[in-house]
Amino acid sequence: MHEATLAENILDIALDAAEKNHATKILKIGLTLGEMTGVEVEALTLSFDVLKKDTPADCAELVVKRVPISAACNKCGKTFRLERYNFFCPECDGILILRSGRELLVEFVDCE
């Protein structure tokens, strides 16, 4: 699915970072992916492993950190971690506003 697009973008970002740091080899790419994004890490890794061939990221490894879904109440202000997509506040009649879980980030690029 769209993991191929994401993998392309990740590679672009990493190659760009390597160039800026005058590095010739990318070792590790750290990703932060929210639980509320429709990304399958396995599909992403597969796509990435195909794309990275014959680039400075040839041996690069993706290190993925998942971010749980959290949301804050628009009335009482409390923050909750969501397991079941229930966006009603468990403590008052407020509505929970998504605070984290939608991240799609390249956190770091390790290169040498």
Partner: peptide, 8 residues
């Protein structure tokens, strides 16, 4: 830190 979908 960069957004993977930043270009889009």
């Amino acid at each position: 830190m960069r957004n993977i979908l930043g270009a889009n």
